[in-house]
Design a protein around this nucleic acid. Structure first.
Length: 496
RNA sequence: GAGCCGUUAGCUCAGUGGUAGAGCCCCUGCCUUUUAAGCAGGUUGUCGCGGGUUCGAGCCCCGCACGGCUCACCA
């Protein structure tokens, strides 16, 4: 044996030894009659009766001279295999002992029996390498803990940490359940452009890119909203879209630059209808995926059973701080009222933003149980319809669960003249330095001028829903490949 | 963008100025019902990168990279 210290070199030598014996270390097909779970279920109870062919990754090997036990893992679970020199013959037995490493894929054929300790095991009559592994896998006891490696090489995380695997399986089931719920409500799923000549539908800074053939700047979408509402104009009365939004902003435990959002729009509905829809949806998904209408998030029990508490922005702030935003109707008055209670509101542009700021600091941390916060300042909601009798407010709500802001909805603004004025105000805000102000969108206004029915719209973050349902504090734990800075450059590997 | 913390073997981690360590993994030998197999022996390293201080730096100082947490902005 070589004294090479490089583990990859050692494995390459073993691979070469397989080749020398005329064995392809990476055969194109594998003979498999049973998954490991199927094999275990197929055992007749009588040793030697049930023949199976299994395949998988070797996750444990125990060599004891002339006999060897090993565990094979596949997607269905794991199964023990038993190899004996006197059964396999010198050559095939030694091939295993001399050229197989932990992590390699093999296939094995044999009959089932039960060991002394009762474990159903394949008594291997023949086996072969199926795919050689060149690098060692994370160690079995402590698994893989290094967060950076877990995110950058998520496949290792998935291999080593079963709880991580469970999170992403749950995520998939959640998304399926959401689709099923909406489909059953008569919604249709649509797809709208990610690459947009004009971004909009949210207050956020976009990613900018360029199309060579068209010679034109494009933006990655920050929200689905404006395209979906064009579909409402077009007579598709219940639509939803699940897709990625891209926002060129900070990265932290609750924000990834690329995240999964769902938006839905329903003609002839309003924001009250959307409240009923979302509380039913969350409840239904929880029951279907978790089998429970309560969840535990970061140590707190949360009951998702409808109806959820509904409280206006004004009442919520009044209750939490004693400040009445209807009395303090200017930015200055609000900042002074907050300061009098020891709350510092960093300088905001306008009353509406100051209200939001105050809300975030005094109310949001208290919103553990599902809560709808209704009736937002109009100036921070350029796409929502004015609340009758309160021209400074709109029919809008956000809902909070476990102190996370989970989604946003309104009675959609369908008055094209009002919409134009709102956009104009946003353009002015942009001129005054608001980097997230909404741009004027003539094309969208033209759509609205063709007539849009009264409509309720709602959007929420899938990632945050998954965080709640899997009890994760960081959004990176529910995104397979979260955005990270590039690892220290391997210099010569810059792409052209 | 700011503050704090982290980066040591393939993995998980000790190591507070004096010869680079442990467990698992890996390698060699023994071992035909083991399962965190066992027994005996052995190997691993740009201590993140670059400077500096010092007789001497994994450890102290400065800069940089990447990550984590908190904050700011947002969902």
């Amino acid at each position: 044996m070589t004294d090479s210290s490089d583990r990859r070199e050692q494995r390459l030598e073993k691979l070469e030894r397989q080749r020398e014996q005329g064995i392809d270390p990476y055969p194109p097909r594998v003979e498999r009659t049973h998954t490991s779970a199927e094999a275990l279920a197929a055992y007749s109870g009588e040793a030697g009766e049930t023949e199976v062919g299994v395949a998988g990754r070797l996750v444990a090997i125990r060599i004891m001279g002339g006999s060897t036990f090993a565990h094979l893992a596949d997607g269905s679970g794991r199964i023990q295999v038993y190899l004996r020199r006197d059964v396999l013959g010198e050559e095939l037995y030694d091939l295993f002992r001399r050229t197989i490493d932990l992590g390699d894929f093999v296939s094995a054929r044999g009959t089932l029996f039960q060991t002394r300790t009762g474990e159903i095991t394949v008594n291997v009559s023949s086996w072969r390498p199926v795919a050689k592994t060149l690098r060692p896998l994370p160690e079995k006891w402590h698994g893989l803990r290094d967060v950076e490696t877990r995110y950058r090489q998520r496949y290792l995380d998935l291999l080593a940490n079963e709880d991580v695997r469970t999170i992403f399986v749950t995520r998939s089931r959640i998304v399926s359940a959401v689709r099923r719920f909406l489909d059953e409500q008569g919604y249709i799923e649509v797809e709208t452009p990610v690459l947009q000549p004009m971004y909009g539908g949210a207050a956020a800074r976009p990613f900018t890119t360029y199309h060579n053939a068209l010679g034109q700047t494009f933006y990655l979408r920050i929200a689905d909203e404006l395209y979906l509402k064009r579909l409402i104009v077009g007579g598709l009365e219940k639509v939803y879209e699940i897709g990625h939004n891209f926002r060129n902003e900070g990265v932290d435990t609750q924000h990834n630059p690329e995240f999964t959002a769902i938006e839905m729009y329903e003609a002839y509905a309003d924001y009250n209808d959307m409240m009923c829809l979302i509380e039913a949806l969350y409840h239904d998904v929880a029951v279907r995926v978790l089998g429970s209408e309560t969840i535990t998030y970061q140590g707190q029990e949360i009951v998702l059973t409808p109806p959820w508490r509904r409280v206006s922005m004004r009442d919520a702030i009044l209750e939490a701080s004693g400040i009445d935003i209807e009395i303090e109707r200017t930015q200055d008055a609000l900042v002074r009222a907050a300061a009098a209670r020891g709350i510092t509101l960093v300088s905001q542009s306008g009353w509406g933003k100051a209200v939001e700021k105050l809300f975030e600091s005094v109310v949001e941390p208290r919103l553990v149980q599902p809560t709808f916060i209704t009736d937002f300042p109009a100036e921070v909601s350029p796409l929502a319809k004015i609340k009758p009798g309160a021209p400074h407010l709109v029919e809008r709500f956000e809902f909070y669960i476990g102190t996370l802001e989970c989604g946003n909805a309104f009675t959609e603004l369908n008055d094209p003249l009002d919409q134009r004025e709102r956009f104009a105000a946003q353009v002015q805000a942009a001129a005054d330095g608001d980097a997230e102000a909404h741009p004027m969108d003539e094309d969208y206004i033209i759509a609205m001028e063709h007539g849009m029915p009264p409509t309720g719209g709602l959007g929420f973050g899938i990632d945050r829903m998954v965080m709640l349902f899997t009890d994760q504090a960081s959004i990176r734990e529910v995104i397979l490949f979260p955005a990270l800075r590039s690892a220290a450059a391997d210099s010569a590997s810059e792409p052209d």
